[in-house]
Design a protein around this nucleic acid. Structure first.
Lengths: 107, 107
DNA sequence: TCATAGCGCTACATATTATGTAGCGTCAAC
DNA sequence: GTTGACGCTACATAATATGTAGCGCTATGA
């Protein structure tokens, strides 16, 4: 379902990992899901649904499947949580929080 | 046209800057445009079009307008380029490149 | 002067994605 | 054996993105 590094995506024929990543992050809710799971806390499907206001279960499930295929999150009895790689990516996303506060002040 | 910090977006009633940012970055081509402009190089509309394979001019223009409203890019006779804030954001996006290479190796 | 070429962009029909709501099958507790 | 919460699916509708044609402008050059 999800495009893997090496495969063609929107805007790139080469499958360059960055382009595959940007393609995935540019789809609705992907960034938000990674944000909610960034700390390693495990959340159930319904917990994720309520943290992401107005996400439809259809799409949430689609994104969760994609992120699992990309090995950024995993799923067990405790719910969904990040893989080690997902946590690293989460820490980059974390930087956006600090940046966005400064940005909002300057606007 | 673009949602500003303080305004409601998908998934957040509060207007928290991070949520506004994630909403914008989660729309097609936003991340890619910021990536192409990250170094400060100025690109014309048509140069951007050819770097972003298959982006439609309709949507490219929409995104460029939004990014200008958010003061992440600007436009002059030399073309489009990042604002100082846009460059800072670009440097965070830059980190994704290194991360994505490691990720692709491990997959 | 008046074609030619490149520019930023718009129009619009079509295709792809996302939303909202209802509810199914499973399991565990009461 | 009903109740409630779980993970999820179905499906109609709405919002977004794509692809292609081409417009109005400016600069160059014949």
């Amino acid at each position: 379902m999800a495009k893997q590094p090496g495969q063609k995506v929107r805007g790139s024929e080469t499958g360059r990992p960055l382009m595959v990543l940007l393609d995935q992050l540019g789809q609705r809710w992907t960034l938000r899901i990674l944000w909610e799971l960034r700390q390693g806390e495990r959340l159930t499907f319904r917990e994720l649904q309520s943290r992401c206001e107005r996400v439809s279960p259809t799409l949430l499930n689609k994104r969760l499947k994609e992120l699992r295929e990309l090995q950024l999150i995993d799923h067990d009895a405790g719910g969904y949580g990040p893989t080690p790689q997902g946590r690293e990516l989460g820490s980059i996303i974390q930087e956006l929080d600090g940046w966005s506060r400064k940005w909002a002040q300057d606007l």
